[in-house]
Amino acid sequence: MGALSNIDPTAVAVWASAVVLFALIAVLRAVFKLNFSLLTVLALGLGIALSLVFDGQVDSLNLLGNIYINLITALVAPLIFVSIISSITYVGSLKKLRSIGLRSVGWLLLTNLIAIVMTLGVAIPLHIGSGVKLVDDESTAGFLTSQTAPLDQVILNFFPKNIVGDLSGNRVVSIIITATVLAIAIVSVGRQKDVSVVKRFFEQTKDVIYKAVGYVVELTPYAVVVLGAT
């Protein structure tokens, strides 16, 4: 009885309701072949409804939501790494890579410029942030200082110093730079030697990771129920 007395009836009811909603989504998916995007939107509505029914007391479902987020996060770095290497080695020509790289950087800068202009275009007329006053104390000053860094340090942090640490820390820019340099090296060596084994390794690794990502993506509607509720 002592162990049973510690069980939260509300949490049990929340989990039971979540299981029922999962079963409903599975039926809609398998029997009615509901579109994935529509199913995800419906899952969001079901999650919100679940939260409303239990008056927001659905914190016990955080475990499932965090597991899904962890799975997605864990796959980001290896997915980027092998995708870049596989794509560059597939092109195979340094001349083509140079052209594609310059165009990619150009489009990246252009889209960032558009985003900045749009942000300022909305923020300035609406006076977003006006009237906000930061508390002038040591804790606030220390926090703000920790969030800033000199330009040279920012640039230095872009470049990798430990690829294992970059992968584990999901430092995307460093991962991109490392993967790009490694892929270009593979293409360059491929001019004199046979590197088909290396190319095949990264191509097959990419296929495996894509399959793993697919498994996680299949869980999205169920995760959205939980995340929508919590």
Score class of each variant (00 low, 15 high):
N112D: 00
I184Y: 10
I175G: 10
V189W: 07
L182N: 04
P150R: 12
S168R: 10
I176Q: 05
T205G: 15
F201I: 11
R103F: 09
Y210E: 07
N157D: 08
I155M: 10
P125R: 02
I116C: 11
K96Y: 07
I88W: 02
L167A: 09
V189Q: 06
S174N: 05
L102Y: 07
L110E: 02
R171P: 00
V117D: 06
I155C: 09
H127S: 14
G101R: 02
V105I: 09
Q204A: 12
A141V: 05
N157L: 14
G142D: 10
V189I: 14
G129T: 11
L167G: 12
E138I: 09
G131L: 01
V172E: 02
A115H: 04
T119A: 15
H127V: 03
G101L: 03
S104W: 05
L120G: 15
V172W: 00
W107I: 12
L110C: 08
P150T: 06
D194P: 13
S168F: 15
S93M: 06
V173K: 10
Q192W: 08
S130D: 15
T145L: 09
I114G: 00
W107L: 14
L108D: 12
F159G: 02
T140V: 01
G190D: 05
Q147S: 02
V164A: 11
S86V: 01
G129M: 06
I116D: 12
T178H: 05
L110Q: 03
E138N: 10
F201R: 13
F201S: 08
V164G: 06
T89L: 06
K95C: 04
D194R: 05
G169W: 14
G92S: 03
A115F: 15
Q147T: 09
F159V: 08
R191C: 01
I163G: 11
G169D: 13
M118I: 15
F143V: 01
L144A: 02
T140K: 06
T89Q: 05
T205N: 08
L151P: 14
G190T: 01
G165A: 12
I88K: 03
S188H: 02
A149D: 05
T205R: 05
V164L: 06
S87T: 04
A185L: 14
K199M: 12
W107E: 03
V154K: 01
I128S: 13
V91E: 13
V195N: 09
I186S: 07
Q147N: 03
V195A: 03
G190P: 09
K133T: 14
V197S: 11
V187S: 01
R103Y: 14
T180V: 03
I88P: 04
A115V: 07
G169K: 08
A185T: 12
R103N: 11
L108M: 10
G129D: 11
S139R: 01
